[in-house]
Amino acid sequence: MQLFPCPFCGLRSETEFHFGGDMGNLRPDGTETDAATWSSYLFLRNNPKGRTSEVWMHLTCGEVFRLDRDTVTHVVEKSAALTVEAHQ
């Protein structure tokens, strides 16, 4: 069982978290977005081998945050709350 650092609660067991998709998958607003772009937003994920930035939710406290980790080594680099800074 991995340990993830919730920005609000600290290190908690992975079973308390819910995966929320790739970081940076920004929502294209409006009805004019072309179908391929909207479909990519809805369904396509990068699934990289190695370092990745993801959005996770800590179900215990409700914090939605950014988590940087390695999908191969499972090393967790850091987490950050979803503020303006985190989106950069």
Binding site: G20, R27, V55, M57, G62
Partner: peptide, 11 residues
């Protein structure tokens, strides 16, 4: 509840 929290924090 999770849906509401997600949009509250992410938008």
């Amino acid at each position: 509840y999770a849906l509401l929290e997600e949009w509250r924090q992410d938008r």
